[in-house]
Nucleic acid binder design. Sequence first.
DNA 1: TATTGGCACTCAGGAGTACTGAGTGCTAAT
DNA 2: ATTAGCACTCAGTACTCCTGAGTGCCAATA
Lengths: 339, 339
Amino acid sequence: MISERSFEVLRAIVEDYVSTREPVGSKALLERHGFGVSSATIRNDMSILEEEGLIHAPHTSAGRVPTDSGYRLFVDRLNELKQLSTAERQAMETLLSGSADLDEILGRSVRLLSQLTNQVAMVQYPTLGKARVRAFELVSVADTKVMVMLISDNGRIQQHVVELGEVVEPALLAQVRGRINELVSGIALADVAAATAKIGEQFEAKHRGFVNAVVLSLQDQVDANRQDKLVLAGTANLVRSEGDFGGNLSPLLDAIEEQVVLLRLISEMEADQHGVSLLIGSENHIAGLNLASVVVSGYGNSDVPLAKVGVLGPTRMDYSTNISAVRAIARYLSKSLGA
Amino acid sequence: MISERSFEVLRAIVEDYVSTREPVGSKALLERHGFGVSSATIRNDMSILEEEGLIHAPHTSAGRVPTDSGYRLFVDRLNELKQLSTAERQAMETLLSGSADLDEILGRSVRLLSQLTNQVAMVQYPTLGKARVRAFELVSVADTKVMVMLISDNGRIQQHVVELGEVVEPALLAQVRGRINELVSGIALADVAAATAKIGEQFEAKHRGFVNAVVLSLQDQVDANRQDKLVLAGTANLVRSEGDFGGNLSPLLDAIEEQVVLLRLISEMEADQHGVSLLIGSENHIAGLNLASVVVSGYGNSDVPLAKVGVLGPTRMDYSTNISAVRAIARYLSKSLGA
DNA sequence: TATTGGCACTCAGGAGTACTGAGTGCTAAT
DNA sequence: ATTAGCACTCAGTACTCCTGAGTGCCAATA
């Protein structure tokens, strides 16, 4: 077990390294943080930390840099998080004010989060989980096109325009709309496919093409909830911290385009302290992301998280700020969507 | 006036420089393109080109690099564009197949364009121009929330969820919906505000709050068409050609986040040859974009363009490929949205 | 007049060398 | 357990030298 002071030294190293981006040496450490001891003592502590694998010297005559384990210990012992500034709180308030639909809420949140943290921010679309159908709508948008809409009781709206290839009379449209609504209103999304499976039979043969097209679109929309989507913002921030990634951003950028990888990664993360979970550097097992850290939190109406929100950045990030920003945004999302 | 061969030399320099990223010298030029002359002759031609300001030597003992004017002349004399490969055509076909709503079409197009060109692709949302209202819909999505939808006759759908702060009965909802529809169906978008201005008066006082909230949202949506939006894709590509921007991407990234700047830029560009217009390097007068080129084309139902689509990249780009890709996507968009 | 071979000249970029100073590890003293 | 002192290491910088790709010019040629 390392001593209390040794840990303080680790903390100081992490903080200095994060803010200066340069390996920190024993003397510089003394100047910035007034430990009541000499540099030799610090050096002893540092050598202990190095034995424990918490810090590491890039080369003999350089200072030390935290290892992934070092960051991990630092974070695990992080007891007070940096507070959001008043300006930041204000931005949150403004954001909160205008009520809006899901897309807009997520879009704004993710942009705000990326601004607060200067990292790449990501929000996962909420899975519908146990959500139920509130209403089904069918709206004519052109002679041969209808828009199929599915509204869930958590406020999520999905829609899709279907090309029918034939003109459909308003009366029939209304009839189909009514019939499907009867069938699906109030049932769980998971049951929609079963409930609508045989609806075609209830209509005359010549209308079945149309009815089936609509039902198919409806089922697609339900399915689309499973393969959830990710909204990203602030990719530009990656470029600004290119140095921290060894100048090689390609794997990162690829992972970002390949949203699937990120999605799986964040879905598998379990919340720990502060309701936030993080993966530091090589703790994630994705090739090319070993210099990156991910901070995520769940959000949702109750204690059951609907989905995740978080940031991605270099291991050399300001964990304290980022954790509190992610928490704040998660709280906001929970409040906005939990209604 | 420069001779025919001198122009061929310029063309070769542009092509070689674009593909190798290195200043091209007289000897290298001879090897790749078998001009029937000696390197000394080429050098003479090059010195003419340099006098004309079409090429430029980064330093005495280096080869030549095209200047902005050089690229410009090259592009203006570009008579045959690179054809899309069959694979690329196929991708377009696939894209074309699934019919979809506006967001989806634009989203897919912009992604495809960025893949075809390896540049940052951008599509401007179509302004509605002379579009008319096809239908107005009011859908209840939660006890105190309704979704206000506006469907235009060019297939564009806009929607917004409005928080009412009170529960509204379905009957009233239907009534309002019907009334507004009567008022706005078929009229030009520009006239919506006028048509709905006094509708509140037609309802009982206790319902006016609700009615006005709905009408306000409707008017907002019409207004939103004026301040058009831009969809971007492939920002990551910028990073890959970082070298061409002198390693300083910040102004570029800023311009991209500041969509306004880009929007103004592309709106002001007038189509020239091939229906495509381009700004090369310092031809655009935006600080920080002087190493970037922009290729845009209008798209729309008839000859009247609704909006622009294009790519942004380093001046050292493959203009031929990019121009034809932009044209192809513009054609596709026109076809998809012109219906 | 246009083209060519030849030659002197230039200079970015790579390789080699020396120097500096931040930082370490160790040891003996407190 | 802490400290002062000291020898040692080595990344980064600065400097020099060298090479070779590339140019510009000129006199000779077609």
